[in-house]
Design a protein around this nucleic acid. Structure first.
Length: 814
DNA sequence: TCATTGTGGGTTTTT
DNA sequence: CCCACAATGA
């Protein structure tokens, strides 16, 4: 631990040596410290009594049940500040675990603010995984790895599993690598090593070969000196179990333990925590059982439900005072979540009286298209009243729902931002580039080698690779090693041999530059000399320029690291997405990725049976699945600070087929008093209007006279036709608001907008007047080049705004 | 080695 | 319906 006197954290360190004070006058000392803290601990000010209790109850197990918006992070960070200020422990004696890097970063930052200094001295604040890596690097040999082990990403895992499945001679279609990956994941989430698998489960996969495959996979990992994400926890648990001395060491070290988002822990994480807490009961878990939405990836709500049972003498503190939302929103959310049985029970409340507060709104639309249109109108109306797009979000259940909104926003010229989705480090070109770097920095990295050996094409196809593989496996040596041996022999075709030789000597040359060149520069050299950048420059496809940009960005960010190795370590654990708030834009994301965020206005579309709650959750997990879906709804509503607006459509296209839908049961579970049923301003004619305004057993029933009795495909087609006729008809009748906004922007005259929409529907395959590559101008997005054309829909790479899909009627030649 | 056709699957995602 | 991926043929 650093003891630099200039280090600002220095002044918060205790006066004692390595052991924290546990005995001898502790009571007196604690009292004195507390009194001092009460007097001059600004960080305690403004905490409500429950928060304060959560901060000050330092000894023994504590469960803080922190409802949405009740100041959970504040409690966690203040608690750490409190431990430090009261001299209960060194920074290095506090273990604080989070799930995401983002959460860890935020905590570090906020602690820094609280105690006024940096928190470099908190080495054990991080994600479960990063802390495990830290531990494993020290004791790697004890779990069959070398300290330099690499961490595989999902892509590498899949390829490895595929090899294992092939090696066992199984049918790859019947037993896919993907399925195997999720099964192994499940095993690792429950901390099951191959020998611990229950017989039934072991037989369930791969014609009864499950255990064998798992063993093989683990074996391959260890030969590669690699670990997957699950291994990081699993190996640490194994380490702790097999080496009580090492465990005792960590138990002694961690005087205080804090866990964020405890409701998201899986069994392995729970066991990991329990092992550490056995030596020292000062564990504080913070979480909200009502926000447990990750059961499908191994999270055990039971962990939080059973806390008092698992940690004897636990104190449970409930944070129910909400600082985020209006009372209407809280009432709606509370009412809904009260329908869950498996919960510890909390009721959120707020003291903030807000006479202008809007009730939660529920609106019905004919189909998803009208849903998008109507939400678009609401957004524009709010915008006109001075609300910023940054303060609004659309939260969907499934990502396919996003497309309709994107299309709509593009037509409206409304700035939007999709949160989530494929991340920077998951893009193909970035993975390829990183594979090159891995080959150079880690010569034994077979997976990286395989990935790029023939990218760009250099005549090293399957045939060559097979030979290299055979030798590598026979000799148990890395592929690069096998390749270089083969270059000495006549086994390969001359062409392949020359090419392979060239690649290997490139690797050697770059390795020689590892020490001398700055990492960013070297990365660029590697990508250039390997021909990788050239490959994309030659590529005429629309994505190529973007990929080149990404590569540039990559070598730029490598420049910020000490070494390439340091960069790789960072990336394998910190798969952060880039991009901050940026311009004013509405956020579009799934309910899952909205957890932890908040917005003034939240739009919640798609509340229909089958979609939300999702049919598959019901089918696969029954009541537990339904409850998790309900928690997801709860998360969605509680994201809203001032306005929550829920939509459900009467018809939705599912797998290409139009289906009439039933309103979500969650709508019935909202409290009548806080909810307002809205007739869409966009005019909603006769459809379903009959059921509105009057509450009853099924207040959201559309009363469509046809729905219940007709469900043949032919009838559905007829309904669809009717919907389309209806929608354009409605547009002319009541779509004036939308059109006015458009023409105010000076884009098009009103009628043309409608024409545009009609055109979009009816003659979408008419040839466009534009051609690919042409430079065009768009009112909202500026200049750009046409990437692709489908009918009258253009995909354009804008200079500033990036790639967008727009209707051709909105662009013109410059 | 590449382009085309066929097939299957379609919820949520972090490390 | 639409996308991604795998097998197939030139």
């Amino acid at each position: 631990m650093p003891h630099d006197p200039s280090d600002p954290t220095r002044r918060i360190e205790p006066h004692f040596e390595t052991e924290a004070p546990v005995s001898g006058g502790i009571a007196a000392r604690a009292l004195a410290a507390r009194q001092q803290a009460m007097q001059n601990a600004p960080y305690l000010e403004g905490l409500n009594p429950e928060q304060r209790a959560a901060v000050e109850t330092l000894e023994g197990p504590v469960l803080v049940l922190a409802g949405a918006g009740t100041g959970k992070t504040r409690v966690l960070t203040t608690r750490i500040a409190h431990i430090l200020t009261e001299n209960r422990a060194f920074p290095g004696q506090i273990l604080a675990v989070t799930f995401t890097n983002k959460a860890a970063r935020e905590m570090k930052e906020r602690i820094g603010h609280l105690i006024g200094g940096n928190v470099e001295g908190m080495p054990w604040l991080g994600t479960f995984h990063s802390i495990c890596v830290k531990i494993l690097r020290r004791h790697a040999e004890l779990v069959g790895l070398k300290s330099s082990f690499t961490i595989l990403d999902t892509d590498d895992q899949l390829r490895l599993m595929k090899q294992v499945i092939q090696a066992e001679g199984l049918d790859e279609k019947r037993w896919t690598a993907r399925a195997f990956a999720s099964i192994i994941d499940g095993w690792k989430n429950r901390a099951l090593t191959p020998d611990q698998l229950p017989e039934g489960e072991a037989r369930g996969f791969g014609n009864g070969k499950g255990r064998k495959l798992y063993e093989e996979y683990q074996d391959r990992l260890s030969v590669l000196n690699a670990a997957d994400f699950g291994d990081l926890l699993l190996h640490t648990i194994t380490l702790f179990r097999k080496h009580p001395d090492i465990l005792a060491d960590y138990q002694r070290r961690f005087r205080y333990m804090l866990v964020d988002e405890y409701q998201d822990t899986n069994i392995a994480q729970y066991l990991w925590l329990r092992l550490l807490a056995q030596g020292n009961p000062n564990i504080c878990c913070v979480g909200d059982d009502d926000q447990s939405i990750y059961g499908w990836r191994g999270a055990e709500v039971d962990n939080i439900l059973r806390f008092e049972h698992d940690f004897k003498g636990a104190v449970v503190i409930r944070l129910e005072r909400n600082y985020r939302s209006t009372s209407h929103i809280l009432a709606a959310a509370s009412h809904l979540i009260a329908h869950n049985e498996g919960r510890l029970g909390k009721t959120l409340f707020t003291d903030l009286a807000d006479p202008d507060a809007e009730r939660v709104q529920v609106a019905n639309v004919w189909d998803s298209e009208e849903e998008a249109r109507s939400i678009g109108e609401e957004i524009e109306a709010l915008q006109a009243k001075g609300h910023r797009l940054n303060d609004m979000a659309i939260l969907v259940r499934a990502s396919f729902q996003m497309r309709e909104f994107e299309d709509r926003f593009v037509t409206l010229g409304l700035n939007y931002r999709v949160i989530g989705g494929p991340r920077f480090y998951e893009r193909m070109e970035i993975r390829d580039a990183m594979a090159y770097l891995r080959c150079v920095a880690q010569p034994a990295d077979d997976l990286a080698f395989e990935r790029i050996v023939n990218t760009p094409k250099r005549g090293l196809g399957e045939a060559t690779l097979k030979i290299v593989h055979a030798l590598a496996r026979a000799e148990r040596i890395p592929l690069t090693e096998a390749a270089s041996r083969l270059c000495q022999t006549e086994e390969l075709k001359p062409k392949a041999r020359t090419s392979l030789k060239g690649l290997l000597s490139d690797f050697d040359r770059w390795r020689g530059q590892l020490e001398t060149l700055p990492p960013g520069e070297l990365a660029e050299i590697i990508l250039d000399e390997s021909g990788y950048t050239e490959m994309w420059r030659q590529d005429r496809s629309a994505e190529a320029p973007g990929r080149l940009d990404n590569l540039k960005e990559l070598s730029h960010s490598i420049g910020e690291f000490e070494s390439i190795a340091g960069f790789l370590e960072h990336v394998s654990l910190v798969m952060d997405r880039d991009g901050g708030p940026g311009d004013d834009a509405i956020s579009l994301m799934t309910l899952h990725s909205a957890k932890g965020l908040e917005f003034d206005t939240v739009f919640l579309p798609g509340w229909e049976e089958g979609l939300f709650p999702h049919q598959r959750a019901l089918d696969e997990s029954g009541r537990a699945g339904l409850e998790e879906e309900r928690r997801l709804a709860y998360v969605g509503i509680t994201r809203a600070k001032r306005r929550a607006k829920i939509w459900f459509a009467s018809n939705r296209r599912i797998h290409g087929l139009w289906q009439s839908t039933v309103p979500s049961r969650f709508l019935e579970e909202l409290p009548e008093d806080q909810v307002e049923i809205v007739e869409q301003g966009s005019g909603y004619g006769g459809y379903g209007g009959g059921g509105f305004g009057s509450y009853g057993p099924s207040r959201f029933d559309n009363r469509d006279p046809f729905r219940s009795s007709y469900s043949t495909p032919g009838w559905q087609r007829a309904q669809k036709a009717r919907a389309e006729a209806g929608s354009s008809g409605r547009s002319s009748g009541s779509g004036f608001a939308g059109r006015a906004t458009l023409s105010e922007r000076g884009r098009r005259e009103g009628p043309k907008t409608i024409e545009g929409e009609l055109v979009a529907k009816s003659v979408s395959d008419a040839p466009s007047q534009f051609s690919t590559g042409e430079r065009v101008f768009h009112m909202k997005f500026g200049y750009g080049h046409i990437a692709t054309i489908e009918g009258n829909k253009l995909t354009i790479d804008f200079d500033k705004a990036g790639r967008k899909r727009v209707l051709d009627s909105f662009v013109e030649r410059p």
